[in-house]
Design a protein around this nucleic acid. Structure first.
Lengths: 312, 312
DNA sequence: ACAATTAATACGTTTTTACTATAGTTTTTA
DNA sequence: TAAAAACTATAGTAAAAACGTATTAATTGT
């Protein structure tokens, strides 16, 4: 049994196809065939059921592959240890970011980060929290930036900042004349929300729920981007809530539409999250340092109340 | 990097000597030399400092070897999974047993176990609790039978039975006429104890301490075996405490010297313990079943108070 | 039934692994 | 302190393993 064979088995389990797996492993398909056969022979069990199309794992095969994942992960950490020793911060680093954080946070730290750590090959993807959790768990992402706490077993969280909710209140709205908003002012019925799947949407719903026992899920307008929410709001479709960093982008003439919450302001917790195995921890540490250094200048709220990002 | 190379590195780290490590790996010394060089080249670090005699690990080397241990352990579990699938209970199984359990428990279950699982090659060693903890942690033991709780981080415990302490009181002892003993009757000053290192000794000391604030460690007589304790006691050197199973061996004519404690009787907890990685869990399960099946006929106390086996 | 897809097999080549023999060092012993 | 012993590194070689190309075999979809 070799680590290579285990990697091959993992690739096949993932792609359910020898040929594609072979490509991903940068070898030919016969190489995979023979190596998997050798592994199966040595263990004297069948890992893959080639009878079915696409290929399926046998019961033992599933356990073997699960354990192979552990072994390969642990093996990858050897390189990690070496990198740490050499003070080397580099290699591929796959980062997921949730949609409501992406456009504001990414421009703030990206330049800074790639300048400071030019050897890191960043691969950034915009993903929902749910997708992020899946991909961190199965090793397709090294880390992600998401709203926390997530209460996910094999994922660790490290808080980057607390980002208050800010109300965006258009002309002629009933709350227009208030200087500061209170949570009890909110009515989910005239609140513009992001479409389903965004954790910021869930946060807002939780916030409103916490004061009104609103369980009716019948809302009128939903959008995929915060920019759209603002435009819809300007059209008089209702008020909305924005994450604080987004308000820095709001055009000056619309600035008057913003209302901060009375302290303790409701806020979302934004964290860098990663697998509990702590693979590539040096890069995660580096990214944490860069982001929290930058954010310190941008957000300086102390008195906040954290709103859960998980729909309940 | 191959699993084989990691195993070689582990062997060298353990023996601090290429030649001996090569023997343990069943290869020649040059094979080890070249493979370790290949590993070091690939990682571009030095693992072993050959400058010192005996060989020492470098700082990174220590971390690499630690991680190698993890990887090799995880890799071993592949065979475990296969064995489990096949319902195969076999292979080498290294079991440690503390001295005060060995002579009574081992004869009770050994025959039974090797008859039921003839393919398991048992290697049993009598070891102190301290030695057992070290050897389970570093993988030299697969499991052990010891008195618990141990509060050791990477060791799991599964209770086999509770074994009450029984007082052995010779003729003309001040407690001779009592039908049942109470903990408050005990005086550590006239108690015969096992020599240092035995957890049963620590248990007895804890028991006495719990009633008298006795911190003076000056005892007069100490012995290495419970048999000797009984003989010393018969010579009038004082009373002593025995684990219940030992009292079943006491000759009939000396039976009259035994006094049970008033319930709840002080007792030690005896468990099968193993590494948290749960390697060879099928065999551990099998052994648990055999022992607890046998012990059910021998010990049937319900009302006990557990005494810690750790000196405090 | 035929084309397309995909895994297995046959076979040659390259790479890797491990062996024997031996050289080069350091440590121990006389 | 010189000789012996212990130990690791290196060279060369044989065996085994890994991988590639070419091809066959089996299955699926049209």
């Amino acid at each position: 049994m070799t680590i290579t064979q285990l990697k091959y088995a993992l690739a096949i389990a993932e792609h359910k196809n020898f040929t594609k797996a072979a490509e991903k492993c940068f070898v030919t398909q016969p190489t995979l065939s023979t190596q998997i056969q050798k592994l199966e022979d040595e263990l004297d069990i069948i890992i893959f059921d080639r009878g079915k199309k696409p290929i399926e794992l046998t019961d033992v095969g599933r356990k073997i592959v699960f354990q192979a994942r552990n072994i390969v992960n642990e093996a990858d950490r050897i390189q990690d240890i070496v990198d740490q020793q050499k003070g080397f911060i580099g290699g591929e680093f796959r980062l997921g970011i949730i949609p409501t954080v992406m456009p504001t946070l990414l421009p703030m730290f990206l330049n800074n980060f790639i300048k400071k750590y030019p050897k890191v090959k960043l691969k950034i993807e915009e993903l929902t929290t749910e997708e992020i959790i899946t991909r961190i768990s199965d090793g397709h992402l090294d880390a992600a930036i998401a709203s926390t706490p997530l209460e996910s077993d094999n994922i660790k969280e490290r808080v980057l900042y607390y980002e208050p909710f800010v109300a965006y209140i258009p002309n002629s709205h009933r709350l227009r004349d208030k200087k500061t908003i209170e949570v009890s002012d909110l009515d989910i019925e005239d609140m513009l929300l992001l479409e389903d799947g965004h954790c910021f949407r869930d946060g807002v719903i939780n916030l409103c729920k916490s004061f009104k026992n609103q369980t009716d899920d019948h809302f009128q307008l939903e959008s995929g981007s915060i920019e759209t929410l603002i435009k819809l709001s300007n059209e008089g479709m209702g008020m909305t809530l924005l994450p604080y960093l987004h308000t820095l982008d709001v055009q000056e003439k619309l600035n008057t539409n913003l209302r901060h919450f009375k302290e303790p302001s409701p806020a979302r917790e934004v964290s860098i999250i990663y697998h509990k195995s702590e693979l590539k921890m040096q890069i995660i540490d580096a990214m944490y340092d860069v982001i929290s250094g930058i954010i310190r200048g941008a957000i300086a709220f102390q008195n906040v109340e954290i709103i859960s990002p998980i729909s309940k």
